[in-house]
């Protein structure tokens, strides 16, 4: 199916194909290396245990990357070449969490597909919520 066909198919109320991934401390460490964000809250279990979080948490941008991957799968190059997103980090993801990224089309107008997207953990807690726009 071409991207144009996929976009033409979407209408308000449609669910985007979900994506699930598991967070590990190893992935968090790799993301810290790539992003340069070595905040011990992410990388030092002993330090993180002494904080309000009680243990290490994933970088918000790592979890947001899962949302972006879900959108790339749903919209292809339209997302990459013109997508916009406004995201709010609502709760942390922790090592061992399974994060599921989902989205629903809220409106299609003016050449734009608008979606509400979010990431939840295995307990159903919302980790990220986002408003998304993709050119049709």
């Amino acid at each position: 199916m071409t991207q144009q066909t996929r976009l033409a198919m979407y209408k308000a109320g449609d669910d985007l194909p979900p994506l699930a991934k598991t967070i590990t401390q190893e992935k968090i460490g790799r993301y810290a290396d790539a992003s340069g964000d070595h905040n011990p809250l992410h990388t030092d279990p002993e330090f993180a245990a002494s904080t309000q979080f009680g243990g290490t948490v994933a970088h918000g941008m790592l979890v947001l990357a899962y949302l972006s991957e879900m959108l790339t799968s749903a919209f292809g190059e339209r997302w990459v070449d013109g997508g916009r997103m406004k995201a709010r980090f609502r709760a942390p993801a922790r090592p061992g969490d399974t994060v599921t990224a989902t989205g629903r089309v809220t409106r299609v107008d003016d050449g734009t597909v608008r979606c509400a997207a979010e990431c939840r953990n295995q307990a159903g807690e919302v980790l990220i919520s986002a408003d998304v726009e993709v050119p049709a």
């Binding site: 970088h59 941008m61 997302w79 070449d81 997508g83 916009r84 997103m85 406004k86 995201a87 980090f89």
Partner: peptide, 8 residues
């Protein structure tokens, strides 16, 4: 980090 806006 509480929020992030992105435009590709």
């Amino acid at each position: 980090h509480v929020g992030q806006e992105l435009a590709f």
